[in-house]
Design a protein around this nucleic acid. Sequence first.
DNA 1: GGCGCGATTCCCT
DNA 2: GGGAATCGCGCCC
Length: 183
Amino acid sequence: MRQSILPREFYFRDTVTVARELLGKRLVRVLDGAVLSGVISETEAYGHADDPASHAHRRRTGRNAAMFGQAGRAYVYFTYGMHHCFNVVARPPDVAAGAVLIRGMVPDEGIDMMVRNRGRDSNISDGPAKLAQAMCITREQYGEDLTTYGGIHIEDSPGMAAGSIRASPRVGVRDARPWNFTF
DNA sequence: GGCGCGATTCCCT
DNA sequence: GGGAATCGCGCCC
């Protein structure tokens, strides 16, 4: 039985809070009626002008426009000439931009299809680009609404107790803020 | 209009 | 632990 989809209000809050609360939630991809899903295990928060590591640190551009858009939509970027990374737009109403990078999940439904998408049977969703590849997320999902059923959405779950969440410095950026979350 | 590099991954030593 | 793959974007000339 499917759980309820997280509503837009969930994402219209402080980006770091949303990053913490996404741990344990279920990321679901519906492809031609098939369901792929996994439990989110690693997230990272990215802010606006005060966050030099964020794509939205400087002005709004064609690439980062989604980070300035409606909370609860997808921000997908292409990097290193070959990888896609999937983010959820999350920000309080008084902050212009923000997003949560989904860096890892524990695969559950549709594992066979994820294995085919990845071309290997281990380490299929334990990194941002691996997860995007396993879930068939590309530029085509840029700006997609995550609060409706039929493409990508995130389902509610009890989430993680605050005491079991570990905060670490974000991966691959020169900034000491402990905005990487795992459990 | 050109140049440098990245919120990464994989494979080899 | 180190280097290659590979290209769109952002910034500067």
